[in-house]
């Protein structure tokens, strides 16, 4: 978490294209508070509400639940409640959202 916060200073980067970045922002904002499923590098999957992200794709999920990888036989499918969880961007393998939530989030999934 600390790295995210520290980097939150005033940005010295100039914004390249206002239109493209504001479009991206809009896309992401459309996903806020939607259920999201993130697979991590160690094979675990977290499901929770998408609350926050940044340039490095660090993602914060609210009321997150952890599911073990499917190969693990022990207590498989039984989730563990994590609450508020931050997944560092470099550990994010895949991101999924529920199809119906895409209706509100323009520009995602539909055009590919």
């Amino acid at each position: 978490m600390a790295t995210m916060i520290e980097e939150n200073g005033p940005s010295s980067h100039e914004q390249p294209e206002v239109s493209s970045s504001s479009q991206a922002r809009q896309k992401l904002e459309g996903l806020l508070n939607k259920n999201m499923r993130i697979r991590m590098t160690d094979g675990r999957t977290l499901v929770g509400l998408f609350l926050c992200t940044d340039r490095d794709c660090n993602v914060i999920l609210g009321s997150a639940q952890e599911f073990l990888k499917s190969t693990d036989t022990f207590s498989q499918g039984e989730p563990r409640v994590l609450g508020l969880a931050m997944i560092p961007g470099h550990h994010v393998v895949s991101i999924e959202v529920e199809a119906d939530s895409l209706d509100d989030a323009q520009g995602f999934g539909g055009n590919h």
């Binding site: 980097e7 980067h13 991206a24 992401l28 806020l32 926050c52 940044d54 999924e96 895409l102």
Partner: peptide, 22 residues
């Protein structure tokens, strides 16, 4: 579930350094 990994990561890159989208 619909995979949006690519788009999501692409969109994130458009954010400014240190900017939090929340």
């Amino acid at each position: 579930w619909v995979d949006i990994t690519h788009e999501f990561k692409g969109a994130c890159k458009e954010l400014n350094l240190g900017e939090l989208l929340h």
